[in-house]
């Protein structure tokens, strides 16, 4: 879902930029004095610049309300299941691999050797959450399983020659 929104927003912005560049390129054949152009488009730039700043402020506020680091929405009295994860070259030690639909889980992720990634993929192979497995540190990632199925765990930080086959599974039951 987030990926889709990100993709559409990016595509829209990039196409808008492309449109402007093509428009200017098409108009470049005509010749006009530079001074009036500068005057007019500096005025436009002011409006454009301010709108961009405002847009950034709005998007920032909107997207920063719910950060994945905070224990998320299910805070009301529900204690998450705490799962310890230790990554190593090349696999994961996970203290619990089976969950029920509706379980809120806190993964405490660290590593025994180099930096690894801990990416949770749903059954359709969409990435739904990730964090980094850092040596000497424990990163936390929260997730609530809403659908049953087998979830894949992939290493998402390059960690050596078997990086791409460093996988594991979680099972979520009804």
């Amino acid at each position: 879902m987030i990926q889709f929104i990100a993709w559409v927003v990016s595509l829209f912005c990039m196409l808008a930029i492309a449109f402007v560049f093509v428009f200017v390129a098409l108009k470049s054949g005509q010749r006009e004095n530079y001074e009036p152009i500068v005057k007019k488009w500096y005025k436009v730039r002011k409006v454009y610049g301010i709108s961009l700043v405002v847009l950034i402020a709005i998007v920032s506020v909107y997207t920063l309300r719910n950060l994945p680091y905070n224990q998320p929405v299910y805070g009301k009295g529900i204690e998450p299941i705490v799962v310890g994860v230790e990554a190593f070259q090349f696999g994961f030690d996970i203290s619990q691999r089976e969950f029920n639909v509706g379980d809120s889980v806190e993964f405490d992720v660290t590593t025994a050797d180099v930096t690894h990634g801990f990416g949770i993929y749903d059954e359709d192979m969409n990435l739904i959450a990730q964090t980094q497995a850092m040596p000497e540190y424990t990163n936390t990632v929260y997730i609530t399983f809403t659908k049953p199925g087998t979830y894949q765990i992939l290493c998402l930080e390059y960690c050596g020659l078997a990086h791409h086959i460093m996988v594991d599974q979680l099972v979520v039951k009804e």
Binding site: I2, A6, V59, T63, L67, P68, L127, Q130, L156
Partner: peptide
Amino acid sequence: TIVVNHVMHNT
């Protein structure tokens, strides 16, 4: 964007 980064970084 942090919420996007959460599911798109390292892709």
